[in-house]
Write a protein that binds this DNA or RNA. Structure first.
Length: 679
DNA sequence: GTTAGGGACGCCGGT
DNA sequence: CGTCCCTAAC
């Protein structure tokens, strides 16, 4: 196969608008102006990693590389948006053509374009974690998978196992042998389950999050024409947070970069915190071997934090054995020493955090520049209560994702079914909303509905416009299988579907019709906090209006997180709120003041991680990530007593990570009972 | 045989 | 806060 291809000439430096050498430090400049070819940028926390990447993109574009031939991969939508914004600011040009996005969103985009090649339809829908679990549950009833013995894992655990298996690019059998040896005796049934789950996904024309990567890789491996086209298209590929890529992502990148080899990966081994979802450390460690001649750039000057915070960070990570040798050098002037704050219990800790925040706010620190970070979602309960009491505005950027809330999922189930009539999970979710319909009736309705669809197809679905009426008609006829109680609701439902079916180009209107037709009433009957939920549902409608295509809307929505939808609100002037977040979600962000709370042994490091030495080292890196979020002030606190499930008040040991810190690097705060008592 | 509602218990992390 | 299991009601 041959293909004409024109390489754009590099522009002479005279035409450049940006003075790269002046705006960057020498280390950053070296990376940004790197000649084409593979390069690895090791960039420590706060050293201007994002800056380097954004200037690199600008540099490429100013040198005549067309934006649509640059692929910029990140892990979170937030990071992606931030980079696109910064490149935009730099160049003052519209970069809609640039291929920037998360691994998952880019994967979804490529799969939409080529779904038929790998046995899916292009209108496939995406399963979130809960949907995956439901589908696994449905498979558990299948023949060949007897689950009567008590030791058979629950659906949740099975989803984790299936996911880890694909993300490590191992078969289920290998995953069981490697990571779950306790299940070897029932390995055969788990493998059968994995096969059934994959088959059910295909029948339903749905993909889970992992499929957005694995199916993409399969597409490239099995269809050389697609691979070659993309290999030629993407002249330059840039990857952020490379230390957290897994084997699948590593291979995807290697495949796409195989021809031009203009691949720049940026990362920091000290911030690798995702091995539990299959991140493969070796991608970054062995990059120089995989790409002989790769240039390696190190950026070690930290512009973010005070020397005091940096010293503490360096000391915190020091006990780890597996790391590239490096020491962050401070560029800033001296500030205050980090504080370690023992508290008598979690309530006192919350009171301390709140009082200190109010003081800082008085001193002029914006609330949005203060973050409370923690290991696990439930660690922040008391702080939330206390902030509510004291009327401190806060934004929780952790916990359940916007899309995963029941009311949002209810509504999108209708849209999903409209987009993809094979979506069994969406159908059953809708069916269960009708009075008198439970699991059994939902199953019957689904069977009846499928039978109707098949009949329609046999009768000659040739006429394209007749197709648009098929869904509503099939639903109506399938409704005969519904219990008496549900008849009226079902009739209304089919009418509504017939109204929204033609509106696939206007998802916002679809949602409004659904709300008006019956979802508003359903909310009132079903939930105590229906007012709040109704608002969010309306908000979903507003959000949907920006999309002119149902598939795109649904894809975007399922890849969104709480943080990003909340940011949407903050545009309305609500941004002055304290950030409450897990450390994982704070990655890549920075704040003037950081509180790291609940630093108890067993909570952080989490008890579960301590089985392996790798686990403890990863926790330590997470601790390091938390510390290095802070620019000016850092507080490390822990309760001496904690209310534990079923055990009442339990004495707590401070985290081993605190014990490891040299005493001259921090100040110990003693809370006086008179100020913090009474909780 | 099914569904709906109440009570007990358990929690790592994210696309 | 949400899931699972039990029991009452249909």
């Amino acid at each position: 196969m041959s293909r004409d291809y024109v390489l754009q000439p590099f522009r002479s430096p005279v035409q450049l608008q940006i003075d790269y050498a002046k705006e960057l430090n020498p280390q950053q400049y070296a990376a940004v102006s790197s000649a084409p070819g593979p390069s690895l940028v090791i960039a420590g926390a706060g050293s201007g990693k994002t800056r380097t990447l954004t200037y690199r993109v600008a540099y490429l574009i100013e040198h005549g590389i067309p934006a649509d031939q640059i692929l910029l991969l990140t892990f979170t939508n937030k990071a992606s948006k931030e980079m696109m914004r910064r490149v935009n600011d730099l160049l003052g040009a519209d970069l809609r053509d640039l291929w920037g996005g998360t691994f998952h969103s880019i994967g979804a985009r490529l799969l939409r374009a080529h779904a038929e090649r790998i046995g899916f339809r292009k209108d496939f829908t995406i399963l979130d974690r809960e949907d995956s679990r439901d589908l696994v549950k449905a498979c558990l009833g299948d023949p060949g998978i007897e689950t009567t013995d008590r030791l058979f894992p629950k659906a949740d655990a099975l989803v984790d196992m299936l996911s880890l298996a694909v993300n490590k690019y191992a078969s289920m059998a290998e995953a069981i042998a490697g990571d779950y040896p306790q299940f070897l005796p029932i390995g055969g049934r788990i493998e059968e389950l994995a096969r059934r789950y994959a088959a059910r996904k295909r029948e339903s024309n749905v993909m889970d999050f992992d499929d957005l990567q694995t199916q993409c890789l399969r597409l490239l491996n099995e269809h050389p024409d697609v691979l070659q086209r993309l290999q030629h298209k993407f002249q330059f590929i840039l990857v952020d947070e490379y230390q957290d890529t897994n084997t699948i992502q590593g291979r995807l990148i290697d495949q796409l970069a195989a021809i031009h080899k203009n691949l720049m990966v940026v990362g920091d081994d000290s911030q690798s915190i995702y091995s539990w979802r299959g991140a493969n450390f070796r991608n970054i460690l062995e990059f120089p071997q995989r790409y002989p001649g790769a240039k390696v750039y190190k950026i070690e000057t930290n512009y973010r934090s005070t020397p005091e915070i940096l010293q503490l960070a360096n000391a915190a990570i020091a006990p780890n054995k597996q790391q590239f040798a490096k020491e962050l050098a401070a560029a800033r002037k001296s500030g205050t020493k980090p504080g370690i704050v023992p508290c008598s219990d979690a309530g006192v800790q919350a009171a301390f955090v709140c009082q200190r925040i109010l003081e800082l706010h008085e001193e002029g620190v914006a609330l949005s520049q203060i973050a409370v970070l923690y290991r696990s979602h439930f660690h922040v309960m008391e702080v939330q209560l206390e902030m509510t009491k004291r009327q401190i505005p806060f934004l929780v950027t952790s916990g359940m994702r916007f899309f995963e809330q029941a009311h949002i999922k209810d509504l999108t189930a209708f849209l999903k079914l409209t987009a993809n009539r094979s979506d069994e999970i969406a159908f059953k979710r809708i069916a269960l909303m009708f009075p008198g319909v439970g699991a059994k009736a939902a199953e019957k309705l689904w069977a009846a509905f499928q039978a109707q669809i098949r009949m329609q197809e046999l009768e000659g679905a040739a006429a394209a416009d007749a197709r648009s009426r098929t869904l509503a008609a099939c639903l109506q006829r399938a409704g005969k299988a519904a219990p008496k109680k549900a008849e009226r609701a079902w009739a209304q439902f089919t009418t509504t579907i017939s109204q929204i079916e033609p509106l696939v180009g206007k998802p916002g209107e679809m949602i409004q019709i659904l709300i008006d037709a019956f979802y508003a009433d359903y909310l009132k009957e079903t939930f105590d906090n229906h007012r709040h939920r109704a608002e969010e549902v309306e908000q979903l409608g507003v959000f949907a209006h920006q999309f002119a295509d149902l598939d795109t809307f649904l894809t975007q929505l399922s890849l969104l997180t709480t943080a990003e939808t909340d940011d949407r609100n903050s545009n309305k002037g609500e941004e002055d709120r304290v950030r409450l977040s897990t450390i994982h979600q704070s990655k890549g962000l920075e704040y003037d003041v950081v509180f790291l709370i609940m630093l108890c042994d067993g909570l952080f490091p989490s008890g579960r991680s301590l089985d392996t030495s790798e686990g403890e080292e990863e926790e330590r890196r997470l601790f390091y990530v938390g510390i290095t979020r802070s620019r000016n002030e850092l507080y490390l606190s822990y309760p001496l007593l904690r209310y534990a499930q079923g055990q009442g008040e339990m004495p707590q040991m401070q985290s081993r990570f605190l014990i490891d810190l040299p005493a001259d690097l921090y100040e110990e705060w003693n809370l006086r009972q008179s100020e913090f008592g009474g909780y």
